[in-house]
Amino acid sequence: MSFSLQKDKRGVVVVGVDGQLIVGNRQELKQKVLDALDGGARKFVIDFTKTGYIDSSGLGVLVSLSKKIREQGGDLRLAGLNEDLQTLFELTKLDTLFAIARTPEEALAAF
């Protein structure tokens, strides 16, 4: 499992989550995004195309990051959720908190 960060030419940071986002690695994701936020980035896409599962701690860190990014005038969007992960966001009603795009490309285009 790992996280990759890429910044496009407009400065949007795309974070790829490979494997899982759970209690054991959520702090690593949080720190990477907060470091980018401290570095001036304001627009973020988290890409779950290669993600198998997310636990409630992973959901919690997304909620926390979204708040911190909004407080800095930025925006966090999610993309690439498979059917199970989409259902997870719907049943927790977190689909009402996040802008969720089908693909990272669609999320980038929406900025």
């Binding site: 049943l91 977190l94 908190l97």
Partner: peptide, 21 residues
């Protein structure tokens, strides 16, 4: 219930709810 509006932006408290589903 973590899906109540007042709990939606809490970072914790979803574990048991998720598990049950």
């Amino acid at each position: 219930d973590p899906t109540l509006p007042q709990n939606l932006e809490r970072e914790v408290g979803r574990g048991l709810f998720v598990l049950r589903h």
